[in-house]
Design a protein around this nucleic acid. Structure first.
Lengths: 152, 152
DNA sequence: TCCTGATTCATGAACTCTCAATCAATATAA
DNA sequence: TTATATTGATTGAGAGTTCATGAATCAGGA
């Protein structure tokens, strides 16, 4: 027996879909236009830049950047072609690879960041009151913790 | 002068990204696994099914399904290959095309719907209180109306 | 030591998306 | 009417994602 969405739930659901899509597309468009990279690549660079030595195991990097291993592997291959990331084998575990953010990669990130932050503000923060922001944060936490055990 | 995100804003932003990604990926995975279509295709079928005559101009359909024209054109081409949608020329405007949902398409949608709705409940609604749902709805509306004039 | 099974990562194919270019039909204006 | 712009839609190329698979390494126990 399917419990369908009632009218109010429908509205909320579609409102949610439209909103998230709007934000995601704005994000991707801005980064692609101004920095020549998709948002997923940006997140990878950010994760690397915040790691000690600007280096991280592929595994851990995938987790931090919220990427699948396969996606990360492909992405890092591209980033390596651009000279933004370098891959080196891992000492402690010879299966492992370590991705390292190059200086060029750091510079690319540094010059992409201001435009990205501006877009984030425009898209989300500027539209919401402090209470709404608090509420949103709690909502996100609730949704994420609900599905612990299914994925991230 | 870039106004960076402070610590609290950072947390909220990343929380938001993680949450929306979680939901989107769950959605796509479920539909792909159980119904053999991505969420974007599902939205197209839904939009068509709700239109009188289960038919709609490509233009209008793109708008309703929140898709770009190009994306829709490619998608409908695929859906046509599967026999779920049919394209016919438009009388009133000979530039136009009308997409029509076939019976097979309607059946595909009907059998995909229950699993999809269940996933939507599991991912989002079950995790939130009624107040949170109300708050979320308002937040989505606020974000969307902020960026009127930039896109949808 | 030798298996067995789990981890780590890379790869290729199939698919979707975006962007720019294209083309035909329709509006608009001179 | 003839030119010009705009609209509706498609197309192809390039890029990213997913899924299934494969290869190498590690870890634990018989």
């Amino acid at each position: 027996m399917t419990r369908w969405l009632d009218e109010s739930e429908q509205r909320t659901w579609r409102n949610f879909l439209a909103m998230t899509q709007l934000v995601n597309e704005a994000l991707d468009r801005q980064l692609q236009r101004d920095a020549g990279m998709p948002h997923t690549y940006y997140m990878i660079l950010v994760a690397l830049s915040e790691s000690p030595g600007r280096a991280m195991r592929m595994n851990e990097l995938a987790h931090r950047a919220r990427s699948s291993q396969s996606r990360l592997s492909h992405a890092v291959a591209r980033l390596e072609e651009r000279g933004w990331v370098r891959r080196t084998p891992c000492d402690s575990d010879r299966r492992g690879n370590v991705a390292v953010l190059t200086d060029a990669g750091f510079d690319a990130l540094a010059s992409a960041a201001p435009g990205h932050v501006a877009e984030v503000r425009e898209c989300l923060f500027d539209a919401l009151t402090p209470e709404q922001l608090r509420a949103l944060d709690e909502i996100c936490t609730a949704v994420r913790s609900k599905s612990v055990g299914r994925s991230s």
